[in-house]
Amino acid sequence: MNNSDLESYLLSLDKDLVLREKSDRVSITVPSEKLLQVMTQLRHDRALTFDMLSAHTAIDWSNENKLELIYQLYSSEHHHRIMVGVYLNREAPVTFSLCSLWQIAEWQEREVFDMFGVRYQNHPDLRRILLEDEWQGHPLLKDYKDDFMLERPW
């Protein structure tokens, strides 16, 4: 499907989806409680078949007190892409694990947990992946501080 077909198809599926800015791929925002349902549709709908989770990361919008999760999906069957964003509460970010849909999500979610502290429900093995197990805090959060870090002198 080309981008405009994909957009109209997605909007017909679920009216809670919000289209975002235009770019080389379709991008949508999903309400956090609907994430698992929408992702299952994206993965298993025959017309969509997003069978590859190529990236998963997060953005710390600390001044709006929000944490945004980003999923980049690709379909190796239809060769289309989509970006899915989900806003979480920054104080206690909890969401559903997508390991059952894409196995690689297991490591990608471990990384986001490591760096941003997002808790994934039903994740089989939610441990730190890059930092030491005994590390305190989540360093990619904007208000992260530790003894090793040097303050910028300007």
Binding site: P139, Y144, D146, M149, L150, E151, R152, P153
Partner: peptide
Amino acid sequence: ACAISGGPFIYESYA
């Protein structure tokens, strides 16, 4: 610069 002093990552880097 990185190998000499930490270079562009000297400030506000945890690693």
